[in-house]
Design a binder for these strands. Structure first.
Lengths: 158, 158
DNA sequence: TCTATTCCCTAGTAATTTACTCAGGTTTCA
DNA sequence: TGAAACCTGAGTAAATTACTAGGGAATAGA
């Protein structure tokens, strides 16, 4: 049971938006630099987020992105679903499981998926950006991203 | 956020064990037939479940498998973890995230993983097999699996 | 109007993971 | 002894993931 990079990037990018696009829209290039995410990949991701109505875009020079609604009205579930990160543990519905003859665990997964969804839907973007850790990180990123010099530290440290 | 077939099979097979191996051990071939799972694949899976101490095996003719401990002492988390279905939403820890310079969402995923784990650890095998739906299914499978004729219904129905 | 900047879109692709199959063991009961 | 069952390692096709490439379209400012 894991999350793909896509889902993680989506949440990271949305938090970046919440932290930095308070008054004006911000560019994808900025997010890409701050969060060390490929620009092209982010572009694809942002199309999904935009289609889902979570963000709005301004085209052209001085353009960029900002949240389409308040931080309080965007949940983790909203973001993950928008990023095609379906919260669905259920069986695909192959020949071993169909409406007439469901598999032994069918209702188990259906119910669990629902519970997970509700859990994630109760975590709002506003809650996420409020944490101490995120606040510290955001300030640091504002500083270190000047000049777009990504800082890479070898994993062998520590 | 999804579960792989492996994790689903593991839970299905453990439920089958709980339902059918009450007094004596049961064969993998039986589980494979009842649950429409490939025998070879089940063998691999059962190796993991056995290594994790969830089931015990009896080799030789008349051999088979049974639960290694009580249904009440085996949780959904136990099964999923044993099946390599790690409950870990956290970032892999690439160059963008390390102990010194963690990514923006690092603690978020760590905490969420923990909450999901605890949730799944509270669901015991005994709870799962007690549901009405499972009881009905189990009885049906006892009957329909006689002669090992798998029943396949086209997905186009309905 | 031109040009740089930005979003927008489609298509491809290498690497990884998944869900198996295959081909043999080994152990035990009858 | 031989059938029934577990046990094991190796291989592999298909799907998925995490990107890259290469353009196009809209807009601000000169």
């Amino acid at each position: 049971m894991k999350l793909t990079t896509r889902g993680r990037y989506a949440v990271t990018a949305m938090m970046d938006l919440a932290l930095h696009a308070k008054l004006d829209c911000i560019t994808l290039a900025g997010i890409a630099a701050r969060q060390s995410i490929s620009l092209s990949y982010l572009e694809q991701l942002f199309r999904s987020l935009r289609n889902a109505g979570l963000i709005k875009s301004v085209r052209g020079a001085k353009g960029g992105y900002m949240l389409a609604r308040s931080e309080k009205e965007i949940s983790l579930a909203d973001i993950l679903v928008a990023a095609d990160e379906h919260i669905n543990l259920a069986c695909g519905g192959g020949s071993t499981c169909n409406p007439i003859d469901p598999c032994l665990t069918h209702s188990l997964w259906t119910n669990l998926s629902q519970e997970f969804f509700e859990f994630l839907d109760n975590k709002k973007l506003s809650d996420l950006v409020r944490s101490r850790h995120v606040q510290t990180m955001a300030t640091r990123q504002d500083v270190t991203s000047i000049g777009d010099i990504p800082i890479h530290i070898s994993r062998t440290i520590g």
